[in-house]
Amino acid sequence: MTYLLQQALNALQLGSIYALIALGYTMVYGILTMINFAHGDLFMVGAFLCFVAATYLKLSFVPSLLLSMAGVALLGVVIEKWAYKPLRQAPRVSAIITALGVGIFLENFTLALCPYPKHIPPLIAHEMWSFGGVSISSLQILIILLSILLMILLDFIVRRTMVGMAMRAISWDKTIVPLMGVPVDRVISITFAIGTSLGGAAGVMYGLAYPVIDPYMGIMVGWKAFISAVVGGIGNIRGAMIGGFILGGVEILVAAFLPSTYRDFVAFAFLLVLLIFRPYGILGKPHPQKV
């Protein structure tokens, strides 16, 4: 029992990181029906920005986090403006290839600046608490609470604010939104800024929780977050959160009961099987697509 509880806690930690990244995929998809395959690499950039902030600028946790989120958000907006926007009317595959290209660029640009894996200095005082055999660290609590806080904030923005309303309207029918007096391009920029900044925050937390960061760290994590978004129903915000926690849970369970080499194979198999039964994901609905 304590073993299971301990694993559940680990699943929650991993799941919240997947969920945060998955939100970026799903938000961009919701508004542009495009998969931003560079998103995993933006997560990586978030970790490196935190490394720079903590190591060279000697900033503490909160300023480092904010700086990383802001930096990644800015990068996301610039990428959208320069790389994706010119391709909005182009065939879907051009946008996908461009996104992959942007991702490879980010990996290699980072590699050129930081050829060796780095280590983010411990920004959080390390403490351990134990409750009936289940131990939890200060970092774990921070990751879980901060992720949940960010998700609540996002949910509020999407459901309660004008910008959120505009995002939802764009995902329904982009051609009508300008007639409401809404500047669509600005809403798209804001969506990229929010979605990528969440990925940046995930990068910071991941970088604090795991020993080293390297320019390729975003690839596998990015794919898994993407799976989470699809599992939850791509384009659906709450679905991405649920999908992230499900995938975190599946991985931890596999690692707990099976050889750890099985982990990714099972995670991806899970996606395939789920999609056979629920092609639109858990919360996704077939959307009456307008032409």
Partner: peptide, 23 residues
């Protein structure tokens, strides 16, 4: 403009549809 086919946002409530137009 009231567009052809009405252009209602089906995923927004009636109130939200109206409110969005006050952007």
């Amino acid at each position: 403009q009231v567009p052809e086919g009405r252009g209602i946002f089906g995923n927004l409530t009636v109130f939200e549809n109206l409110r969005l137009a006050t952007w």
